[in-house]
Write a protein that binds this DNA or RNA. Sequence first.
DNA 1: ACCTGAACACCGTTCAAGT
DNA 2: ACCTGAACACCGTTCAAGT
Lengths: 226, 226
Amino acid sequence: MPRQPAPHGRTGRPPVTSRTQILTAARRLVDRDGWEKLTIRRLAAELGIGATTLYHHLQNKEDLLVLLLNHYIDQTGRPPLPDDPRERIVAAATAMHDALAAWPWAAEVLTVDGFVGLLDESALWMVEAVVSGARERGCTPAQAVGVFRSIWYYTVGEILVRAHSVGLGADEPARTRGTSFGGLDASRVPHLAAIGDQWADLAARDTYPRGLCALVDGLLADAATA
Amino acid sequence: MPRQPAPHGRTGRPPVTSRTQILTAARRLVDRDGWEKLTIRRLAAELGIGATTLYHHLQNKEDLLVLLLNHYIDQTGRPPLPDDPRERIVAAATAMHDALAAWPWAAEVLTVDGFVGLLDESALWMVEAVVSGARERGCTPAQAVGVFRSIWYYTVGEILVRAHSVGLGADEPARTRGTSFGGLDASRVPHLAAIGDQWADLAARDTYPRGLCALVDGLLADAATA
DNA sequence: ACCTGAACACCGTTCAAGT
DNA sequence: ACCTGAACACCGTTCAAGT
C-alpha cells in the first residue's frame, strides 16, 4: 500500500515511507560498512532522521534484522528444481547455502534468532523442496522433517564457521598458528601430527557440496532401512 | 605458577592472581546471570576490582571468551573411545555435541571467533578420534579432514539453531505461530501444509544422533567409492 | 607491578514534548 | 500521525595518574 505523495498542509521532509526505504538504507549501510555497523543510530543517520523516529516503524533491533533477512531472501532468485527427488533436495539445499554464503551476515541473524519464525512464505519453497523430495523417496512426514533439519544444521554450521574463519589471516596472522597443527605431540594425537601443516590447506577447501551429498544419501538410506 | 601469599609491605586487596580467579568468576557470572551478561565491567564488579584493572590480565573481551571456552573444555570429561572406527567417530562427535549442548553459550563463542584457533591441545582428542576413525576406514588424509569438517558443521549448526530456538516459547508465545505451518497455502507448499501444526512437534525432537549416524555413514560410503 | 577513576566513543530504548 | 532531543542505563577500551 504505497503512500500518497500529496502533502496535506506540510511540505517538510517526506516521511520515511515505512519499511521499504528503511530496508534499502539498511542494506546499503551493511554492504558499505559491514554488518557490525548496522545500528539503530547509524541507520537513522543514513536516513537523515532522528534515531528515535525509527521506533515508529520498527519494534526494536531484532525486528529490523528479521525484516532485513526476509527482504534479502525475497530478492533471491529461485533456481529450477529437478524432478528427481534426491537431486531436488540437493539443489534446494545448495540454493539455501549459496544465498547465505553470498551475504554472510545473514547467517548472523540466524544465530540471533530462531530460524523458523523468521522465514516468510517466499523462503519456504526451499523447505518444501526438501520435504517433498524426502517424501517421494519414501520418508514419513516425521522423517522428512528430520531430513530437512539435518540439512539445515549442516548448512548453517558451514556458513557460520566459514564466515568467522575468513579474514582472520588478513589482520591477525598470529592466529594462523592455530589453524596448522605443526608442532603437535605425535604420541598423543598421531594422525593430526601427521597431517600437520597441511591442515590449513585442507580446511580451506570447499567441501560443502561433497558433504551435502554424503549427508543426503546417508539420510535417505537411513529412512529406507527404518 | 601460584602466587606467594606473602604481602611484602602491603596488606590491601590481594591481587587477582591472573587467569584462574578471573575465569572462575566469569563462569560463575555466566551460570548465574546468563551469557549475555558477561561483560568486562560486570566481571570486574564480580571480582571487586575496577573495570580497567582487567586489562592487565586480558588483552580484550575476545581473549576472555577464548580463555573461558578452553577452561570449560579442559574440565569436560573424556569418554572411552570404541575400537571400531565408525563407532569411534560417532562417540567423539557425540562428546563434542554434548559438551556444547551442556553449556550452550560456549557455542556463541564459536561464532564470535573461528573455531580451530581457539582449541587448545586438550580438546584435540576429539578431532584426532574422528580423523583416526576415518583413516582406519580407508580415507585419505584429505578425506579424513573433510569428514571431520562435515561433522563439525553439522554439530555446530545443531547447537546454534537449538540454542536460539529454546526459550522463545517462554517469553514470546507470539512467535510460536512461525514454528507451526498451520495456515499455509496448500497449492504452493503442499507438503508443508500437510504437515501443518505437526511441524512444531517434529522440530522439537532430538534428531542429532540419527542425523549424525546418517552423515557418518554417508561420508564413509562416499570416501569408499571415490 | 598492580590498580585506579575519568574519559572517549559508542550502544538500544524510553519519554515527554513538539508540529 | 509523525518526528524530535534529552535522558537512562549501559557497553569496550584508553590513558594519565597513583601506590
